[in-house]
Design a protein around this nucleic acid. Sequence first.
DNA 1: CTGTATCCACAACGATACTG
DNA 2: CAGTATCGTTGTGGATACAG
Lengths: 124, 124
Amino acid sequence: MTETLNQLHVWYQGDEWCPITSTTTLIGKKWHPVIIHRLLEYGPSGFNELKRAVDGISSKVLSDSLEDLESKQLVSREIVNEKPVRVEYSLTKHGESLRPVIVSMRDWGTEYLAPAETPESSVV
Amino acid sequence: MTETLNQLHVWYQGDEWCPITSTTTLIGKKWHPVIIHRLLEYGPSGFNELKRAVDGISSKVLSDSLEDLESKQLVSREIVNEKPVRVEYSLTKHGESLRPVIVSMRDWGTEYLAPAETPESSVV
DNA sequence: CTGTATCCACAACGATACTG
DNA sequence: CAGTATCGTTGTGGATACAG
């Protein structure tokens, strides 16, 4: 069996464990998929770098989201000692493993939800 | 280009359109993926059938969710004239097209989030 | 059987301002 | 640069009761 996320497999529907509910509990918050996608495509990024990339998110919500993702072991946070201080966010191995999920979401959106004019569509 | 969902491709991040945000806006509510998965795997179902299958959901929330999915053209609702009255919910073509997304969520959950004991895990 | 009507609780999101 | 502190608004879900 593959290794599972530590202590994070506790989501049930009623009595029974459900893989889909488990997944949405982890990445079902508004900005999570977009943040993960950015980290998948561009690699480790700093806070403001992410904030610029994830268009429209506020500092607070980005901070909250990253904290949540870190607590779920999908993202890791490393403080780089430069000046000024840099903090680098990157995907953990488990975070990386989400690639098929995020990609399928992106592809479906691209195929079925694209605006008619199709301008410079940005996938963050 | 593939046909897109009518008037439903309006989700942007800030200025720019984002496929992932668009997708999560459609299926990002708590029970949506589970409901869609059930319809994908078992085909058209009645209200109480769904309620039993989606363990833990209340009548109100199921009703709300189905209404939302219908408004987004992912689920269709048909009244079957029997007695007592039956209502049948099924996926539209667009709803069906979500299969890769839902399946990837299920598979990821199964691989990385399964309980250690792995009892009778139900994917609805 | 298939819902609706209320009403409540709380989580999530967001704007703004401020800090080391 | 990388956040935190506040505070308010809205969204989402859930419990319970009732109805055609």
